[in-house]
């Protein structure tokens, strides 16, 4: 990709924010019938978000202009090579984020207890801790400690999962004397 186009790419985020600032007001209020209850001369519920959207738009516009300006003024050929970036394992990072999201999904279906056990094991393996004799005890003991602290002691209503897992979680809790 030519260098100038690459630099223009940096103008995409501010441009997107700017567009969002113009589109979002349409989605501000859900039901208009309540607007009838507002008296005359009052700021109303839209005043503050509108001010914020305006400020966001101004800042994004500034940013956009600056990025475009630097892109256009930059010489077509790179003057100096960009500093070599340290090798960064992007695939590992995105896999990590995906697993975190999947953990959120799993809690709702498997319940907190089983999802956490699974997540701890998967994360350790992903993070380079691969010895089964480390992974298993850390995951099992970790889950048990978390269950006793947050479900038994702090009585947090963490999800118990759905279907068979709900029954399984309740049986597990009863076996652990949490219930």
């Amino acid at each position: 990709m030519p260098r100038r186009a690459k630099l223009l790419l940096k103008a995409v985020p501010p441009a997107l924010i700017l567009i969002a600032a113009f589109v979002l007001p349409r989605f501000m209020l859900q039901n208009q019938n309540m607007a009838a209850m507002i008296g005359e001369g009052e700021a109303g519920p839209t005043f503050w978000p509108n001010v914020m959207l305006t400020l966001v738009a101004i800042c994004a516009a500034f940013w956009l202009v600056r990025e475009v300006w630097t892109a256009l003024r930059a010489p077509a050929v790179a003057g100096e090579a960009p500093p070599p970036a340290a090798p960064y394992n992007w695939r590992l990072a995105w896999a990590g984020l995906a697993i975190v999201i999947l953990y959120g999904v799993a809690i709702q279906y498997l319940g907190f207890a089983f999802a956490t056990l699974l997540f701890l094991a998967v994360w350790l393996i992903l993070g380079g801790v691969r010895r089964p004799l480390t992974v298993a005890p850390v995951a099992v003991i970790g889950t048990l400690v978390l269950l006793y602290v947050f479900v038994a002691l702090a009585q947090m209503p963490l999800d118990r999962g759905r279907g068979v897992f709900a029954g399984g979680t309740i049986e597990l809790y009863q076996a652990l004397r949490i219930y």
Partner: peptide, 12 residues
């Protein structure tokens, strides 16, 4: 699967 699970839960 989730639906089956749910209906099971409804039965149980």
């Amino acid at each position: 699967l989730a639906a089956i699970g749910l209906s099971l839960a409804a039965l149980i």
